[in-house]
């Protein structure tokens, strides 16, 4: 069983952290992963930086620009992660935009992920129909799960389709927004969370966007399997470097 799937079966709410590879310093990718594992997070999304991150707000945009300026590339990331499984047992997901994957070659990219021990991918701008028609077989061949996004605007019908094609979790975007744009949840989120809970999907849901602290983490995970923190984590990386990662994680978990 894929590490993501085993993790999803554990009887607890999962905390997942997103960070941009090669940020704040180019060689920080592995140390950040090690700090995260030590501080007890459940899963990690490693961001492959892209020049034009359409779905991201300023915090992740800036970290991506900085990582690229640091010299981050796809090849470099694979190089950094070559021996990641010597120390890291967490489920690992690479999250990025489709164009860099396309340029690397989708099959070559998936093969490399498999060799390293990556468990899944999140490529927000790879649409469901294109994935199913052109790439699903390749992902499966290399044991990679593809996680899809849904939003408050996604229709029930499309959510069912996405649920059918999902083998890991569904990435529930908390509100109609780019990353880091909104903080706190209101009426809209509550009815959205309820609507999804009532659909009784086969795939567990993990909420992302707008989660920044214990309060929003708890609100997001009331009816879901877990939550992902991205921008808030990157902000603290920017402020403190890799030193205070454990403090940040503890402030969410305890």
């Amino acid at each position: 069983m894929n590490r993501i799937q085993s993790k999803l079966q554990e009887n607890k709410k999962l905390l997942s952290i997103y960070f941009t590879a090669g940020y704040p310093k180019i060689e920080d990718t592995l140390p950040v992963l090690q700090h995260l594992q030590k501080s007890g997070v459940d899963m990690v999304e490693i961001g492959l930086p892209f020049s034009d991150p359409l779905a991201d707000g300023p915090t992740i945009q800036e970290s991506s620009t900085a990582a690229l300026r640091n010299g981050m590339t796809t090849e470099k990331l694979f190089e950094q992660l070559k021996n990641v499984r010597d120390t890291i047992t967490l489920p690992l997901i690479i999250m990025g935009y489709f164009n860099p994957v396309l340029q690397y070659g989708v099959e070559a990219f998936c093969k490399k992920c498999n060799e390293i021990g990556i468990d899944g991918l999140i490529l927000p701008d790879l649409p469901l129909d294109v994935y199913v028609e052109e790439y699903e077989a390749t992902f499966k061949k290399y044991g990679l799960l593809n996680m899809f996004l849904i939003t408050p605007q996604t229709s029930d019908e499309r959510i069912r389709q996405i649920d059918n094609s999902s083998e890991g979790f569904i990435y529930m975007v908390s509100s109609a927004s780019t990353t880091g744009a909104k903080s706190g949840f209101g009426q809209e989120q509550e009815s959205y969370f309820n609507r999804i809970a009532e659909m009784k999907l086969k795939s567990p849901q993990i909420v992302g966007f707008g989660i920044s602290n214990k309060e929003t983490f708890n609100a997001a995970t009331k009816s879901t399997k877990g939550a992902i923190i991205g921008s808030a984590f990157i902000k603290q990386l920017t402020a403190n470097g890799t030193e205070k990662i454990a403090d940040f994680v503890n402030s969410i978990k305890n």
Partner: peptide
């Protein structure tokens, strides 16, 4: 080269690594 820009698959100027130039 063939790639994705602004939601469309088309020809675009990019680095070998797929960053838009």
């Amino acid at each position: 080269k063939v790639g994705i820009i602004h939601g469309s698959k088309t020809l675009l100027m990019q680095t070998p690594d797929g960053q838009i130039t």
